[in-house]
Computed example of a mutant assay.
Amino acid sequence: MTAITIKKCCVDDVQTLQNISMETFIDTFKDQNSPENMKAYVEKAFNLKQLETELSNQTSEFYFIYADGDIAGYLKVNAGDAQSEAMGDDSLEVERIYVRKKFHKQGLGTFLMNKAIEIATEQNKEKIWLGVWEKNKNAIDFYSKMGFVHTGAHSFYMGDEEQTDLIMTRTLK
């Protein structure tokens, strides 16, 4: 049986966070986006300065998930003003939830989502929400299985291309 552990990240983890962020994002989206737009997004979102700023934000939290001691994925949640949309103080956003390809189909996404729900519950949030690319059917199916429903949409920019993210929400109270 695989030993699963989840560890909260700190600024000292920035290089590891950058590596896994780039790896998982590129693996997830490279086949549906131009190399130029991928490069532009990755350089903007995952540069060390940007990640250090996010790690230092008191209303954002990052977590690594490990499978038998090997880093397998990560989670980022936002509360308050750190949320990418103004959803109110009663909400927690799951901004990023990624599992490395070699760890897919092992239930690690469920572990990470349950961690996000646990955090939201501990913070007395009434709902948890996320944005997911409308073309990412596997993720949409996963979130639906986890009790999220489509409640809206917003724009997401991949380089210079405007894309649509579905907003999915799960009520906790």
Results as ranks from 00 to 15, higher is better:
residue 1 M to R: 11
residue 1 M to N: 12
residue 1 M to P: 04
residue 3 A to Y: 11
residue 7 K to G: 03
residue 7 K to M: 13
residue 11 V to A: 15
residue 12 D to Y: 10
residue 14 V to P: 07
residue 16 T to A: 14
residue 16 T to Y: 12
residue 18 Q to C: 10
residue 19 N to C: 08
residue 20 I to Q: 00
residue 20 I to F: 06
residue 21 S to G: 06
residue 24 T to C: 02
residue 24 T to R: 01
residue 27 D to N: 14
residue 27 D to H: 08
residue 28 T to G: 01
residue 30 K to Q: 09
residue 32 Q to K: 12
residue 32 Q to P: 00
residue 33 N to V: 08
residue 34 S to G: 10
residue 34 S to Q: 10
residue 36 E to C: 05
residue 39 K to M: 09
residue 39 K to A: 08
residue 40 A to S: 14
residue 43 E to Y: 07
residue 44 K to E: 15
residue 45 A to H: 12
residue 47 N to R: 05
residue 49 K to S: 04
residue 50 Q to A: 10
residue 51 L to D: 01
residue 54 E to K: 01
residue 55 L to N: 04
residue 56 S to M: 09
residue 60 S to Y: 02
residue 61 E to I: 01
residue 62 F to M: 03
residue 62 F to D: 00
residue 63 Y to M: 07
residue 65 I to M: 07
residue 66 Y to G: 07
residue 67 A to P: 09
residue 68 D to L: 08
residue 68 D to V: 07
residue 69 G to A: 05
residue 69 G to D: 14
residue 70 D to W: 03
residue 72 A to C: 11
residue 73 G to F: 06
residue 75 L to N: 00
residue 76 K to A: 04
residue 78 N to S: 09
residue 80 G to C: 08
residue 81 D to E: 15
residue 85 E to P: 00
residue 88 G to V: 09
residue 90 D to W: 12
residue 93 E to T: 04
residue 93 E to Q: 10
residue 98 Y to L: 07
residue 98 Y to D: 04
residue 99 V to T: 10
residue 100 R to V: 12
residue 104 H to N: 08
residue 105 K to E: 12
residue 107 G to D: 12
residue 110 T to F: 12
residue 110 T to H: 13
residue 111 F to N: 09
residue 112 L to W: 05
residue 112 L to I: 05
residue 112 L to M: 13
residue 114 N to D: 15
residue 115 K to M: 13
residue 116 A to F: 06
residue 117 I to R: 00
residue 118 E to A: 06
residue 118 E to N: 12
residue 119 I to S: 06
residue 119 I to F: 11
residue 119 I to P: 03
residue 121 T to R: 13
residue 123 Q to S: 08
residue 125 K to F: 11
residue 127 K to A: 12
residue 129 W to K: 01
residue 129 W to V: 02
residue 130 L to K: 02
residue 130 L to Q: 01
residue 131 G to M: 05
residue 131 G to A: 07
residue 133 W to A: 08
residue 133 W to F: 13
residue 133 W to M: 09
residue 134 E to C: 07
residue 135 K to I: 04
residue 139 A to G: 07
residue 142 F to N: 02
residue 147 G to F: 13
residue 152 G to M: 10
residue 154 H to P: 01
residue 159 G to N: 10
residue 159 G to Y: 08
residue 161 E to P: 01
residue 161 E to D: 14
residue 162 E to I: 08
residue 163 Q to E: 15
residue 165 D to E: 11
residue 165 D to M: 03
residue 168 M to H: 06
residue 168 M to F: 11
residue 172 L to M: 15
residue 173 K to V: 14
